[in-house]
Amino acid sequence: MKHWLWLAAFVAACALVPLFGNNYALRLATIMCLYAGLALSWNFIGGMAGYPSFATAAFFGLGAYVSAVLQAKGVPFVAAWAAAGFAATIFAALIGMAILHLKGHYFAIASLAVVEVLREVVNTAEGLTGGGMGINIPLQGMSADVQARLFFFVMLTMTVVLLAATIIVSTSKLGFGLRCISQNEDAADILGINTTFYKVAAFSLSAFGVAIIGAIYASWVQYIEPPDVFDILYSVKPLVMVLLGGLGTIFGPVIGAVLYLALEELVWRNFLTVHAAVLGALIVALVLFLPNGVGAMFRQWRKRPAVQS
């Protein structure tokens, strides 16, 4: 119950942005929702099931392209987004059945290779995707202001859906099974958990969320090209956000996304040429000093004065 109240609070806070904020704030809030959505999606496979997936960029790019190609053929954008989500879900289920029996680094590399291959495939299929030239998805008949608001609310809705899904999954049999798998897969198997099914479910769920966000992103920026949407940073950033907020927790990915965006903005503005280096240093510091995320630090800090209980 408590989770749902927090969710409502989050929505209320976000919904205030377009009322009071300027366009810059609206843009940041949209990116924040995008990041939070990616982090929440990755959390299903990476946090709950404990599988270090780097396939996020593959799903992001796949979603963006499926939706862009469909829209170029005249499909309305909402239908194209949904189609992108389902295409990625099926793709992830098939790929997942093939690579989810790999453990640790092997899985990580296989999932990374999926990104590379998919990017090249899209690059090569010029007839359909425009190849390296990219693809335009103009959105006609709407002022820039209206568009900015529209995409903010769409992105927010998606984040809320994913957050709700996270709450439901983590308190359900699926989430419980995934936690078992992440801690000891052999024991989970012996305990009667259909580990393959659970892992594939988590991977597909993750792909579904990421792909729809990718599709919305494509419509928002109105132009995509392979190196942009298949950027490996889309695989890495959600992972860092989740680490920042707390692996496998419910609100950790959202908190991590907010913190990450704040850091990114600060770094971008002040250290333009070395922003990647500063980001790298932050990641290093995070792994070394806050391996359980800021959430854990906060909890520990709260525990200390609790003498009376």
Partner: peptide, 29 residues
Amino acid sequence: FQIVQPFPKMTVVENVAAAALFAGGAGGM
């Protein structure tokens, strides 16, 4: 197991509940 293999980060009752839920035919959480 000879070498006991609990889910280390879960509580004792969660460990047992997992067994009941996935193999023991318990209807729900």
